[in-house]
Design a protein around this nucleic acid. Structure first.
Lengths: 268, 268
DNA sequence: GGTAAGGTATCCCCTAAGGGGAGGGTCAAG
DNA sequence: CTTGACCCTCCCCTTAGGGGATACCTTACC
């Protein structure tokens, strides 16, 4: 016979836990002194404690353990119970895996944006772009409506998205209220969806400028890039591309001062 | 301005939850009528609710969300926070995967035992055994001490165990108190451990009998199999093998009436 | 047998994220 | 003015125990 303290050392359960299991009637001391209320435990209690610890370790609740201990005394009988519990655990794993995927997306997006800022001198550069597969929604109207286009593409191509969203501008002048543009997102795999154009965006040379700050200051960066084009006497191929490296985030709107946009003008 | 009921429909949060978030100061109504105590919400509350729901979905606690909302307003700033949270989630995934492995072991063990009972006629059979790799501990003394041997092998080869434990008996007579036997477990991979013999158990023909019931009734099954051997005039090769298909389980001792043991006597 | 240390008992409050319900006040339409 | 729907606060409940207060008990030592 062991006192509760000895029993605690033998089983590794805390005294509080042992008293709690007594209260819940899953681990009843073999003898309780009716005068003092002292609990005394024997070897069969040790065995039962071992079983309870096992079930707790595999995340069975006290109530489930109680039901198992009350109704079964052979492993064969609880097979279905175990099988069902396994399904529950597997569902949790799937849920947590989705969370990790979601976190990974946010983290890698942000890291890329940070890297873009660190690697950029915020000067005009000339560079080569590779061809990319995109899904695009052609729109007519206000620039600021492009969000709707992105949402629509996101709903249809969510899993295939492989890079930052961009807009293609087909006007050669600035017409914010009645623009002719296309909201696009680079994708990994093609799929037919009505109203969404899936195609390759051609490769080529371009002039690129990183714009840091709110969208309504984009004009300044456009002026800078157009001046450069004039000096160099380049011929521009429409549409102009605007890549949203960092904008209002998934979680926070963020500070517009940190928004990051890359303007790309293709040249002949 | 929305009443709490309208706000609940917009956000999908329950009214109780909205009040709770107010109490926790993470979602404070834009206006509270000081006479009636009625809460009224505006669009900025909707946005904040969206953020809170997002964080709750990826299993951030209310306190964590509070800290994030109080201290940050840009995704970039919480990257470390997200990274750390990801580690936590991944730890949970690992834990649950271990539970699933543990459950799988129990479940498949029991299923095999059930299948063995269903497929057996409990008659003597002759069959061929393939060679198996085993880890064994040679012992001298009481049969019932074999458990210690299994424990020892389990501690050293736990991950490599690939089938049911068995005992090899080197005596040709029944000597329960001073037996010469070897506790063995089939393993997947070899490893050097002092005091444990790892080797191939040879293939060959054997006479096999399934014994259902407690171990102290094994004598009857031995009598049956030896009678058969005499009639057929087979010559037996020691050691005799005793395979414990189902004994006292990991969880419950189980009912000895359902214990299942296979006796295998190798013949020339 | 007395004393002191340490073991044990019960009782109450606390956790996280809300849910359920009681009792009572408020709003808007008829 | 009434009625039904809506909203308020307050209290208790959930899991699996942990922390602490206070009182009683056991054991060792003198």
């Amino acid at each position: 016979m062991f006192s509760i303290g000895e029993f605690s050392k033998i089983t590794g359960l805390s005294i509080k836990t042992i008293r709690f299991y007594h209260e819940k009637e899953i681990l009843i001391p073999s003898c309780v002194d009716s005068n003092t209320g002292y609990r005394y435990y024997d070897h069969s209690n040790v065995e039962k404690a071992r079983i309870i610890i096992y079930f707790r370790n595999i995340e069975f609740s006290i109530n489930e353990i109680k039901e198992i201990l009350d109704n079964y005394n052979d492993q064969t009988d609880i097979l279905d119970y175990l099988e069902q519990h396994k399904q529950t655990i597997e569902a949790k794993i799937r849920k947590y895996k989705n969370i990790v995927i979601s976190l990974d997306n946010i983290i890698s997006n942000e890291r890329e944006a940070i890297a873009a800022i660190e690697n950029s001198s915020f000067e005009i550069e000339e560079k080569s772009l590779e061809a990319i597969l995109i899904a695009g929604v052609r729109m007519q109207g206000k620039y600021s409506d492009c969000g709707k286009g992105f949402t629509r593409i996101g709903k249809n191509f969510g899993r295939y998205i492989c890079s930052k969203p961009l807009c293609l501008y087909y006007d050669d002048e600035y017409r914010p209220e009645d623009a002719n543009f296309e909201a696009c997102i680079p994708i990994r795999r093609s799929k037919e969806v009505e109203g969404i154009s899936v195609r390759q965006l051609p490769a080529g040379r371009c002039i690129s400028l990183l714009h840091k700050g709110p969208y309504d200051e984009l004009g300044r960066s456009y002026a800078k890039i157009l001046e450069y084009v004039n000096i160099k006497k380049y011929e521009i191929i429409l549409p102009t591309r605007e890549v949203y490296l960092k904008g209002p985030g998934i979680i926070f709107k963020g500070n517009p001062k940190n928004y990051l946009t890359e303007i790309q003008m293709m040249i002949k």
